[in-house]
Design a protein around this nucleic acid. Structure first.
Lengths: 223, 223
DNA sequence: CAGCTTTGTTAACCCTGCCTTAACCTACTC
DNA sequence: GAGTAGGTTAAGGCAGGGTTAACAAAGCTG
């Protein structure tokens, strides 16, 4: 299920959007000004953010720019009445992923947000990275067309890594997304990574599963 | 440099777009019908695809749907005169990432395509200073496009310096922001700065990491 | 249901690479 | 030429990551 944040000071519009999203079974937090929005963004993890630009306390542009500078890459859809070309260019320049001008059709907001969130929360049923492929329906991965023998848990880890590729995934988020809340209290992850690596990179020339020291792991071609 | 595919049967429009993209130094292949487009998509790898919907041989919607089913997840921007809500919903449903209605401003096409491509390549948030760049997601810095080999601690130091650039940072604040409260009681910082400098300025003409005698360090071009 | 296989967890150990530390070097100042 | 600030090197400790094996749990199979 999608988990959004709406940052919008017009209460009427905000409740309308939230009500509508609920019908679509989309969970949605709400912040009424820029500062509160930024705090929520830093504290929580959302699939996407719908951001009004004309906000009290801190403008939406500043919110977006600030979160990007802090390394938060959640997709942002800017929602505003400012419709000149220059406004749009500025919005994308500050790190927006999409830009929707008021007034808008509720349905369009929804499909655009879903499009933004889609890559991460997985409607795609086949992922690929160079010669590494993952078929999520068959639960089968291939390296260079050769099928890999992966345990269910190794598959989950591979899926998370491939979705984030080429960005690294921290140990915590990896553990969180694979084990959920109750986590093994030992080096299980190390062993799974080891086994995964043996399958993915074993015997092949180019190594894809890189260790990011002190942080986590990343799937990408070595630099 | 970006590498796009434009699938568009209106030759006048296509050449106009391509000419414009060239001014922005964006490389762009062109296909005049859906089938040719799909072939190119399968054969090559693009950063993003601009797809007209009303095409000879095979409609843009079919092209998009087919490539998604084959596991190709290149971002797609649909470009069409069909502007009803239902058209847009259908477009996103078939796997589009963005949807732009004709007529459109060339600049808007460009910024939207760039937004799609940068998200896919994971380059959403970067700090940069001349030819020195820091990708906060990848936890990777580049000098003149060459990746730098930095330890986790060197990376933290670089991040602090880049955020303050071109202002100098005092030793105390640098130590405070990297080590926090319990600090090494020796010349650790000196060594880290040395290693950092070797990576950042090593072998390059312009030095960026300047020493402010008696105070600290600054990242900027030499006077 | 017994025995086999597959999978996940845990512990133990090894090893690499990072951080610290100290010592020495250089340049500049008084 | 001693003092000081910063630069350069090398050594050692240690943590974190890699590797292995043993065991437990769960699934299959005859």
């Amino acid at each position: 299920m999608l988990n959004l944040l709406l940052v919008e000071d017009d209460i009427d519009l905000a409740t309308a959007v939230i009500d509508y999203l609920e019908l679509e079974e989309i969970q949605c937090d709400h912040a009424a000004n820029g500062l509160v929005g930024l705090n929520l963004i830093e504290k929580n993890s959302y699939h996407a953010i719908v951001l009004d630009l004309n906000l009290p306390k801190m403008s939406g542009l500043t919110v977006c720019e600030t979160m990007r500078n802090k390394g938060i890459d959640t997709p942002v859809l800017m929602l505003t009445a400012m419709d000149t070309l220059q406004d749009k260019i500025t919005g994308f320049d500050k790190g927006a992923d999409d830009y929707l001008v008021k007034p808008f059709a509720m349905q369009e907001l929804i499909v655009r947000v879903q499009a933004l969130a889609r890559r991460r929360s997985g409607q795609v049923n086949r992922l690929s990275l160079l010669d590494l492929e993952l078929d999520l329906q068959k639960k089968q991965a291939y390296r260079n067309k050769r099928p890999l023998k992966l345990s269910p848990m190794a598959l989950k880890i591979l899926e998370v890594l491939m979705r984030e590729s080429p960005n690294p995934v921290s140990r915590e988020t990896l553990i969180q997304s694979v084990w959920g809340d109750e986590q093994p209290d030992s080096n299980s992850l190390k062993v799974h990574i080891y086994n995964l690596r043996k399958q993915v990179d074993g015997g092949d020339v180019t190594t894809l599963l890189q260790t990011i020291s002190g942080y986590g792991f990343a799937l990408k071609a070595a630099e």
